[in-house]
Design a protein around this nucleic acid. Structure first.
Lengths: 199, 199
DNA sequence: GGCATAAGCGGGGTAAAGTCCGGTTAGGTC
DNA sequence: GACCTAACCGGACTTTACCCCGCTTATGCC
């Protein structure tokens, strides 16, 4: 009995989770997020509706799981990829690089990110992973008198919020042009907050 | 025919809007946001369900209208109230004062604010009013090389995001203690962004 | 004041989210 | 290998957001 993780999930449950995620991605790719219904997902995956809800709790939960899965790849690059995104560069450079990577990530996954939010269920909203990364990096920069916890939260939303609003509103702002402005804005914000005197 | 405003709304329609908003507030007060259903609202207001949807577009739209209504009062104080929230104080002081007022506002209305968000419909998400105010004030502060539009969006979300997350997650964080931390965090952020050298 | 027209209105209908509970099965124990 | 328990599974059921289309009524013109 090797409990490297306490495995709170039974083998069949884990298998079904994978089946469901795969079916969800499939439906997502062929018909878009709006057409992904719980009934359809259950039917397509060959499982019952009760199972779908047991696994993900709600419709938003499915998208959250999908997004988490995609985010893990970004997390890997932050934790052990090449600098400046990964370890080895000065903290400020890593902060800026993270912003750029995050903007790209959100631009790529905005349809899923949108389906994540749900005003009815509290479960949907979680502390974004960004906040953890930002907190660690901000601690490396020495900022006397700053409340790092709060500051990390503020920056996490400063990064995600405006871009998501833009992506939700506009029809399809593809291409590098609009995201470039957000990336530049993020760099500027980070430098201001960290007291880099550009003047 | 005095069209001071182009009056896109018929007289009876305007009256019904008021009836519906009043009924919504009533239901909200006595049973909470989760119990406010469209059918119940229609029944209580003595109008048809179709009318409710015609007026507000969706469930989230009702809460948005409610929130807009409440926000108007804050807006008044910003535009023509006493300083430092209203005109007459230095821009930085006004920025800080606005943050404090906004934190209080969100803390008071978080239940309604939460019901506003809806991942299904694009109509729900709008540019927050904060962003307009922040843009004006930031322009007064002379920030060379800053993209004011983007910066205003970033700060608007830095202000709302973390607090809303906190309010959504916790059961009921009433009292002045937790909001005080956000208010202090906002002051610090504004001073950093505007280059006030506190050190 | 009657009329044309366009907007407002109503409530029944549909589809999809989320719940429930009886039957089933995995996984550990003796 | 048999048994026990707890977790899992399925699909019928309920609730509710949202749509639709024929009826009603406000408003401007003759």
């Amino acid at each position: 009995m090797t409990w490297g993780t306490p495995q709170p999930e039974r083998a069949d449950a884990a298998r079904n989770r994978q089946v469901l995620l795969a079916a969800a991605r499939e439906l997502l790719a062929e018909a878009g997020p709006d057409c992904l219904t719980m009934d359809l997902l259950a039917e397509r995956s060959g499982l019952g509706k009760g199972t779908v809800f047991r696994r993900f709790g709600s419709r938003a939960g499915i998208f959250q799981a999908l997004l988490d899965d995609s985010e893990r790849e970004l997390q890997e690059r932050v934790l052990s990829g090449p600098p400046p995104l990964g370890p080895g560069a000065p903290a400020i450079d890593r902060l800026i690089a993270y912003g750029t990577a995050r903007v790209r990530f959100l631009a790529d996954h905005h349809a899923v990110a949108r389906a994540t939010i749900d005003g009815r269920h509290a479960a949907g909203r979680r502390r974004p992973l960004s906040e953890i990364h930002l907190r660690v990096l901000l601690r490396e920069v020495h900022l006397p008198g700053a409340d790092i916890e709060v500051l990390a939260g503020q920056l996490a939303y400063a990064l995600d919020g405006p871009l998501l609003l833009q992506l939700f509103a506009g029809p399809e702002l593809e291409g590098p042009e609009p995201t470039a402005r957000f990336e530049a804005g993020w760099r500027d914000l980070v430098e201001r907050v960290c007291g880099v005197s550009g003047a």
